[in-house]
Amino acid sequence: MSALIAPSARSRSPGGTQEPKWVRVCLIAVALAFIALFLVLPLAAVLTEALRNGVHAYREALREPDAVSAIRLTVITALIAVPLNLVFGVAAAWAIAKYEFHGKAFLTTLVDLPFSVSPVVAGLIYVLLFGAQGWFGPWLQAHDIKIIFAVPGIVLATVFVTFPFIARELIPLMQSQGNDEEQAAIVLGATGWQTFWHVTLPNIKWGLFYGVILCNARAMGEFGAVSVVSGHIRGQTNTMPLHVEILYNEYHSAAAFAVASLLALLALVTLAIKSVAEWRQGKILKALGELPPERAGVYAADALTLQPAG
């Protein structure tokens, strides 16, 4: 059936819509103006402010010891938080998308919890648990283990806040793919690990990749929760976003925007990688669409729904 619909959908697409030209122009203009005002302009402002005192000052701002330490801490945090969430996220998505069990709806809600909780509350949870006055505080202090106001606390808060990104990216993808292929693999004698590695992972790899990129962007950019557990010790527990705030509060606007421009750059790289990921995914689907009908039939519908422009 999908093979029958496909040609007609394709033949209509070059003609486009039936609206008069001025409507189309206006709509495009509004969209472009909106993008320029809310996305391009702030980005340009960050870059101009960052370079206000010249390239030399820009470089100095990034080489200053406190800035270097903030960048290092941010990278370390992301390097720990993202792989953890990669494992958690794939496991959670796998369980939710491929199996039926009691409490599945509850688990799905739980995965979304960090999205709905304010980051400040997320930070305070850890202060209440691990702070000197908290539940585990006296025990931790007796054993000289530092969590709050140190790197472990920052990593914990970041893991909590970025938890849903990978799972949320994978669940709809895995659900739409169903588990026919996994069942076929098992019937043909594959072990669980082989099924995951050779069947499931190739199917989700671009979605997973995009999830990791988003998770990383948020891990590096998180402000609220980290601010609560950081203690703001300069050169020790300041991440990049916190360092930006400090510089701005000290009237070092140019330096603040120099560090902010690194975060903006991260956003741009994220967007670029996302585009590549989507393009690759699209290409795979297109290749499937061009297979002979008896093999492609199953996939064509998916390919077309994912690529409305055809």
Binding site: G131, A132, F149, G231, I233, I246
Partner: peptide, 20 residues
């Protein structure tokens, strides 16, 4: 000497919560 700055009341609270 490491420095930490913020609102005075908030800073006191952090020290009570275990800021070293």
């Amino acid at each position: 000497v490491k420095q930490s700055h913020g609102g005075s009341g908030k800073q006191a609270r952090s020290v009570i919560d275990g800021l070293d």
